[in-house]
Design a protein around this nucleic acid. Sequence first.
RNA 1: CGGGGCGUAGCGUAGCCCGGUAGCGCGCCUGCUUCGGGAGCAGGAGGUCGCUGGUUCAAAUCCAGUCGCCCCGACCA
Length: 489
Amino acid sequence: MADDKKLTKRSEDFSAWYNEVVLKAELADYSPVRGCMVIRPRGYGIWERMQHQLDTMFKETGHENAYFPLFIPESFMKKEAEHVEGFAPETAVVTHGGGKKLEEPLIVRPTSETIIYAMYAKWVQSYRDLPILINQWANVVRWEMRTRLFLRTLEFLWQEGHTAHATHEEAGEEARRMLGVYRDFMEGYMAMPVVTGVKTDAERFAGALQTYSCEAMMQDNKALQSGTSHDLGQNFAKAFDLRFQTEAGGIEFAWNTSWGVSTRLIGGLVMTHGDDNGLRVPPLLAPIEIVIVPIWRSEEDKGRVKAAAHLIKESLLSWERRIPGRLRVHVDDRDGIKPGAKYFEWELRGIPLRLEIGPRDLDQNQAILVRRDTGVKRAVSLSSVGEDAADLLHLIQETMLIDARERREHNSIRGGITYARFREVMEGDGGFVYAGWCGDAKCEAAIKEETKATIRVLPDEEFRSAEPPKTCLKCGSASIAEALWAKAY
RNA sequence: CGGGGCGUAGCGUAGCCCGGUAGCGCGCCUGCUUCGGGAGCAGGAGGUCGCUGGUUCAAAUCCAGUCGCCCCGACCA
């Protein structure tokens, strides 16, 4: 049945489409544990490439990796009032170990601020010990009510950077710097454009002074918070007695930041780039960039075409490209499956470039390159296939970002929207709406109540409208900041 | 936790009202023919019908209970 093979269309049921893509492209699968998923090799391969690139960027900005325990003493969590209040409802608690009740319950980390700053307090005596710039790659647990593959699971993988500084200014710069790193990564590698800005009180991280965020627009026009960076001020330093002696001889509390991105990014990748044929992976993150499909009729052709396919792979692997690393190539020479079936399979999995080689091509010393993003086919000479493939991959990467940005702008509304119109938009197609805000949390809450839309961020300057809004979207009094409103994941 | 739905082969499902040998599609295995956009034919493997109890000569089917999952609402990367 042909219908069994087709995905639900995005326009029919976006949520069903998303689940099918994740499962059928073999990125992840449901596990026997409620709310927890298994990340399969094709999904984990993308995560590994994300990790590698981010890790490089963290190192380039002076950070080192370390590892802190999974378990956090309950008393640690309780030391920062807002923090415990924010996370208590969603923590998993270990009460027994080795068959005995523990004297003090252990929290399975939902995030590691408390244990990390407790350790920093031990390591820091003087301003000479600062800054501390540490990142850890870890799993965390948050006991969510409703889960979605990659977007919200009880356990997920992430990185959390934790830094300590001598001045607030330096910490503030760090928080902004890492937000910039996230943005560069999301746009440069994921081809996922983001709006950056600062969160309102309602959406701020529990225990932070300021939370900065990257917000991306998914194809259903909802916002995905894809990375956050926090200026923690001295809140945790005070809770954990993280003090240092200044150059002048006084004693001060250190200033902290924390910042993180998670496997949620994979969900963002799917919902940013996927189409009705399946996943589309930007080349820079694709574990396989090029799949070679040999085509044959006779036994005789089969031999020579398969041999040619492997030779082409060797040729591609030896190509010196401008970016680090070799081309990542796979030859699909499985017997008993027709080429067409292979095309559908690799398209579903989102491989950016397909190379078809058949007897007729071989006779003409050429191959066919097919782009996953546009479907456009092109014949190339076997003598220049490496260069052509590398160029196309580069072009695909660029095109995906441009297309995603165009889609976002097309679904963004700016300038003088009435609240009635706003409600229509949020009940209809949704999107990003830039509008004024009076600064009162009551207006924000009322809008959330009535439309489900929230302020995703107060956008950074480059994202703001040329003409600043004058009045609050809700109450009509003077606007103190332009806000980006949207429904969110 | 409130509302709605569903548990039958790896996946999707029919059968249930009206009890009586568990069926179909996809996938899987073998063979032959195929192979430039989801192949065809032939043969084959695969099921404690979520679980427990009850009614009955007999339960996927009727009754009671229970567990799990999915969808919609309040929290969240």
